[in-house]
Simulated scan of single mutants.
Amino acid sequence: MATPAFEDIAETFDFLEDWEERYRHVIELGKAMPPMDPSLQVPATKVEGCASQVWIMPRIESGHFDFQGDSDALIVRGLIAILHALYSGVPVREVAAIDASAELGRLGLEEHLSAQRSNGLRAMVERIRLLAAAA
């Protein structure tokens, strides 16, 4: 069910030998992500439940889900980039059917993120699902 972009990330994670390399890759994914316009970083787009500042702004085009996201923490920007790869381009009606926990589990993120980061990641997934459901 994962998108080709997410499959690329999963393949890269399989290739990387240890968590430190994967962690650096997540940060690089975040650095490569285009910055979100600061005018969109408002309370309405802020994701509650994250230790860092996180904003997600949905875009629905031709019935497909997409979003812009940003954070003040590099690792979280990387997690946003991974979520973008997982959800971007998916038909809106199929967003809720994606088992984010299983897909992200393929990357081994849960066992290497702090409890706060894991909670924040779950909050971002929930926000994406709510935004898609409201579309």
Rank of each mutant, 00 (worst) to 15 (best):
I128D: 07
F65K: 08
A44W: 02
V125A: 11
L104G: 01
A96T: 08
D14T: 12
I56M: 05
P58T: 13
M1R: 09
C50L: 11
V47K: 01
S88T: 10
F65T: 03
L74V: 02
A44M: 04
T45Q: 05
G108Q: 04
A97Y: 02
K46G: 00
E94H: 09
D8W: 03
H112S: 08
N119T: 14
D70P: 10
R117T: 06
A85K: 09
D18N: 15
G120H: 03
I98S: 02
S88N: 12
L130P: 08
R106V: 01
L40C: 04
M1L: 05
V54Q: 09
F67D: 10
L86W: 10
G89K: 12
C50E: 07
I56R: 12
R22V: 04
Y23L: 04
G69M: 11
E11L: 15
E20F: 06
W19K: 15
R129I: 04
L40T: 04
G108Y: 03
S71P: 15
M57G: 00
L113W: 06
A100M: 01
I75P: 05
G69P: 10
E103D: 15
E7L: 14
E110D: 09
A123E: 02
E21I: 01
I82A: 13
R24C: 03
S118F: 08
L130K: 15
E61D: 03
R93F: 02
L83T: 14
P34V: 01
E103W: 10
A2E: 10
L83G: 13
L121Y: 06
L83S: 11
P58C: 09
L74A: 12
L16H: 12
Y23W: 09
A123F: 01
S62E: 05
A85M: 06
C50W: 13
V125G: 05
S39A: 15
E7Y: 04
Q68T: 03
W19H: 10
R106I: 02
E48H: 03
Q68V: 00
P34M: 00
H25T: 12
A85H: 05
D99E: 15
E111Y: 09
E103G: 14
R24N: 10
M124R: 15
W55H: 12
L104D: 00
M1I: 05
L121G: 12
G49F: 11
Y87R: 14
G69S: 06
D8G: 08
E20M: 11
L74Y: 07
L104M: 04
A2L: 07
M124L: 14
K31R: 14
L40M: 13
G49A: 09
R106C: 02
T3L: 01
V90F: 11
L86N: 10
A135W: 09
M36W: 00
D72E: 02
L130Y: 08
A44F: 00
G69K: 14
V76F: 07
R127G: 07
E48T: 05
F67T: 06
R93N: 11
A123T: 01
P43V: 00
